[in-house]
Simulated assay, not measured.
Amino acid sequence: MGNLRPSEVAAAGLDDWRQLYQALQARFVTGDFATGLALLTDIAAAAEEADHHPDLDLRYAHLNVRLHSHDTGGVTERDLRLAARISELASARGVRAAPEQLAAMEIALDTPGYAAIRPFWQAVLAMDSPRRDDEVRDDDADLPRLWFQHSGVDEPRQRFHLDVMVPPEQAQTRIDAALEAGGVLVSDEAAPTFTVLADPEGNKVCVCTMLQRDD
């Protein structure tokens, strides 16, 4: 079973869910801890039945759910099936999803030669990414992934910057808010895939979406 392209995931019509990087994510607003725990228990039983297990993060008033296939390193049909089932369970308990609250973050490091520095970051972060050599990644999502952005030897580099992955429908809202808060638009040439902003001191961030990432 192979990974689905972002456009295929979006076409599945899972309104509660968004693909952020290599995973499907949802947030269910439970309102209280007991309701969240009950929904978590429902999901655990469904996951055991499907033999496919999500990452569950229970907070006081919401439950975060993250789905991806460890054996392929991405989103597959079995993730879509379990996501649909989880949405059914949430609906049965009167719990709504809040996709507008979703986001995921990676740290990007500009470098002309990541092969020389990647072993250091693998060691100090105790992370790996056996399927890609331009990142180190924690598939359990305890830490943000570190992505090595190639830059030319003579290009000016900022070194580290943040990439914030948001649902496509939330990107412009985030951008507008950042600009209103004193930010500067550096480049929107690659929008909607990513838009580069900077704070008043010139520190950069990319507001990213999964749109146009099938290649």
Rank of each mutant, 00 (worst) to 15 (best):
L143G: 00
A11M: 05
D51K: 14
D163R: 08
L4G: 08
E8M: 11
V9E: 07
A34I: 08
E155S: 12
A141T: 08
T111L: 09
A44D: 15
G183L: 03
L162P: 00
W17H: 09
D215Q: 13
A181E: 06
V184M: 03
D140N: 10
R174F: 13
E48V: 10
A12V: 09
G13T: 04
L143F: 03
E180I: 02
L185G: 00
R18Y: 03
R66K: 14
D71H: 04
L63W: 01
Q158T: 14
R213D: 09
L58E: 08
N64Q: 15
F33A: 12
M127P: 04
P192W: 06
L63P: 01
A181Q: 12
G182V: 07
V196E: 08
Q22W: 09
L146K: 03
D199N: 10
A84E: 10
G36P: 05
M165A: 14
E135L: 14
Q19M: 14
L89W: 01
A23Q: 02
G2Q: 14
A23K: 03
D110F: 12
D140F: 00
A90D: 00
L102Q: 10
D32R: 14
F28I: 07
A108S: 10
V205T: 08
A178I: 01
L102K: 07
F148D: 00
K204W: 01
E106F: 01
L89G: 00
G113M: 06
E100S: 11
G74D: 04
A115C: 02
P144R: 06
R132L: 13
D176N: 08
A44L: 13
Q22F: 13
I43S: 06
V153L: 09
F28R: 06
L58S: 09
G182W: 04
Q22K: 12
F28G: 01
S187I: 05
A198S: 12
A97W: 01
A23V: 03
A108E: 11
Q149E: 04
T76L: 07
T193A: 10
R159S: 11
R59K: 15
W147R: 15
A104N: 12
H53K: 12
W121S: 02
E135N: 10
W17K: 08
L102P: 10
F148P: 03
A11G: 05
D163Q: 14
T193H: 07
P6I: 06
